[in-house]
Design a binder for these strands. Structure first.
Length: 267
DNA sequence: ATGACCTCCCGTGGAGGA
């Protein structure tokens, strides 16, 4: 079972790229971020024609997240990150697929830093930590996948010294990621590739992709019972080369088997 | 380097992205 995350940077503007990638990569589950479309403009019919059921949480112009499942309808369990009823940004959606809880995450960018946008990011990450802790207590298989807008370590950025004051690499943000790991989540990509550069984003400027000046900011956080089941992980870098492509590349993990529908932990 | 490059919007440049 292959589970992917892809910040499409406009689901309608990139629809051709998305559909081609779905056809070629054939992921079982896809978490999409940055739809940049309101609910009524989500291209559900084209995605269905490609063989995928979908649930989505859109927003005009910005943000927006969706979960796709091959050959089935995801069972939606949540729209929006809990913890602030005044937060109107569409950055979280969650669904059950094959007995697994899939949380699709789009963490705020946070730039410029310092400033209100950075404060919003830190606040959002605090709410995510609270909610992620509740998810772990359920003792069911959970994956939090998406664009975290966090560069976890020096290895995850081409020139760390250039990014020290950026909202993606500030200590407060790296610490927020570490807190999630300390809760018991495992970084699925790093679990399989502990020493490899695994960039998932290259900006449009300066021929960043051609020079491989990238960032690893798209992540899979696995609940403890899923860690032993991850057999492969990778980045579909070729997609970043395509015409009219997103600045992110699709990123994925492969589970060696379907997890049990229910699992009881003892002790 | 307030840069570049790309999306969206009802726009004909601005905001947001990372």
């Amino acid at each position: 079972m292959k589970i992917a995350s892809y910040n499409v940077n406009g689901v309608n503007g990139r629809l051709e790229v998305l559909l081609r990638w779905l056809d070629e990569a054939s992921p079982d589950v896809v978490c999409l971020q940055e739809l940049k479309a309101p609910d009524g403009k989500f291209p559900a019919k084209m995605i269905e024609a490609a063989g995928y059921g979908a649930v989505w949480h859109g927003q005009k112009s910005w943000n927006g997240v969706a979960i796709l499942a091959k050959g089935q309808e995801p069972l939606i369990t949540r729209k929006g990150l809990p913890g602030d009823p005044d937060d109107s940004q569409s950055r979280y959606i969650e669904a059950v697929i094959d007995g697994m809880l899939i949380g699709c995450v789009y963490v705020p960018n946070g730039n410029p830093c310092p400033g209100p946008r950075f404060e919003y990011k830190l606040n959002w990450l605090g709410r995510l930590a609270t909610y992620a802790g509740e998810l772990l207590e359920l003792n069911v298989p959970v994956i939090l996948a998406g664009d975290f807008n966090i560069i976890p370590a020096d290895m995850d950025v081409y020139k760390p010294e250039r990014w020290v004051n950026d909202a993606l690499f500030r200590n407060e943000v790296k610490d927020a990621y570490k807190r999630l790991i300390e809760q018991g989540w495992t970084d699925g990509i790093r679990e399989l590739h502990p020493n490899k550069r695994m960039y998932t984003f290259w900006d449009y400027f300066r021929n960043s992709f051609g020079r491989d000046e990238g960032l690893r900011i798209d992540h899979f956080l696995l609940s403890p019972d899923l860690v032993a089941k991850v057999s492969k992980a990778g980045v579909d870098r070729d997609v970043r080369r395509w015409q009219h492509t997103s600045d992110h590349a699709p990123t994925w993990i492969q589970m060696s088997q379907k997890p049990m529908r229910k699992r009881k932990l003892h002790g």
